[in-house]
């Protein structure tokens, strides 16, 4: 049996194998590039969706929600359990799990997170970290570690082919869906009063309070909303990835990289960086194989060096 998944250091060990004796075939580098780009965008939409929730929670509450990965996992596992227990498939799971995770988020905020909001943000980081361990363990105990089956929704199991470029229908659907959700969230944020308040509170909650906005009233729904987005991302992932208790443990690291690149607490930053990271990963896979993830963290390091507050973080932050 191979080493455990989290032993990332292991892949530096051992002799290097000669790699890629044959380059991608018959000339068509352009086709490959387009293919990678589309795959990157599809992946990016998905990262953007999950990172959006993380960014909003961070902005409004100042909480670095470590449990975002676990909530993503709960969304996927919940969808699989729902299917197994009631036969309700993907199209039901999308709304039902999103609502369920919203409620879960509300409970989490009311029962736990709110008590630590006044303290150093480290406390809530540790709280959500502990909660992650707990949730992962509970799921392991209940559903084992090998994961749960989850099929592709009927009608989305085909391929969409345009010339030499070909993508799975589900991948296209997931990308379009994620982008639509991001857009919808964007519209709510930019065109409504609630959105304006959330944006203002995300940027500076204290100042918003001093301007007469009852930020506390928005804290719970915003937290629930962020968690709901994580759950939704999890449901979207279920048909195309492994549904296991551990599925969020690595995902959360990528998400942190996304929000750091985008600029913490920047909603637009999370979305843009989500796509950026998706593209970097896809090009990395296409052109640099094993190092595809390394590029994500190199990008993060570069952003931290050049713009410590992130691509869309406010420059004034540097004072």
């Amino acid at each position: 049996m191979p080493p455990a998944r989290p032993e990332r250091a292991a892949y530096r060990a051992g002799p290097k194998l000669e790699n890629n004796r044959t380059a991608p075939t018959t000339g068509s580098h352009m086709t490959a590039f387009i293919q990678y780009t589309l795959q990157g965008l599809a992946l990016g939409g998905f990262y953007a969706l999950a990172a959006l929730g993380l960014a909003v929670i961070f902005g409004v509450l100042g909480v670095v929600n470590f449990s975002h990965g676990a909530c993503y996992m709960l969304g996927a596992v919940g969808a699989a359990v729902l299917l197994d227990a009631t036969g309700l498939g993907f199209w039901w799971a999308l709304p039902l799990m999103t609502i369920a995770m919203f409620l879960f988020g509300v409970l989490m905020e009311r029962l736990l997170v709110q008590w630590l909001l006044r303290l150093d943000p480290l406390y809530n980081f540790l709280l959500t970290f502990g909660l992650t361990l707990l949730l992962v363990d509970v799921v392991k105990r209940k559903y084992g570690v090998s994961g749960l089956p989850y099929p592709l929704p009927a009608g989305l199991d085909g391929r969409i082919t345009l010339g030499a470029v070909s993508l799975s229908t589900y991948q296209v659907f997931a990308a379009v869906f994620s982008i639509s959700v991001c857009l919808a969230v964007w519209l709510v944020l930019t065109k409504t009063r609630v959105g304006m308040i959330v944006r203002a509170s995300t940027e500076d909650a204290e100042r918003s309070r001093a301007l007469g906005i009852n930020v506390s009233r928005w804290v719970t729904p915003v937290f629930g909303f962020g968690i709901a987005l994580a759950g939704l991302a999890g449901v979207l992932r279920a048909p195309t990835g492994s549904v296991t208790a551990d599925m969020g443990s690595f995902f959360i690291i990528i998400l942190f990289a996304v929000v750091v690149i985008g600029g913490l607490g920047s909603i637009l930053g999370a979305v843009v960086a989500g796509f950026l990271v998706g593209l970097v990963e896809a090009y990395g896979q296409g052109y640099a194989g094993r190092f595809s993830q390394v590029f994500i963290f190199m990008l993060m390091a570069l952003v931290i060096l050049v713009r410590p507050s992130g691509l869309f973080g406010r420059e004034e932050a540097a004072s």
């Binding site: 304006m196 944006r199 203002a200 995300t202 940027e203 500076d204 204290e206 100042r207 309070r209 001093a210 301007l211 007469g212 906005i213 009852n214 930020v215 506390s216 920047s266 909603i267 637009l268 406010r314 004034e316």
Partner: peptide, 24 residues
């Protein structure tokens, strides 16, 4: 009482850094 309650009671604050929102 919290800052937002005080603001609603009619106290307006103009901070030294002006506190203009970049995202608005």
């Amino acid at each position: 009482s919290s800052a937002d309650k005080r603001a609603k009671a009619g106290i307006g604050w103009v901070p030294d850094d002006r506190g203009i929102y970049a995202t608005l």
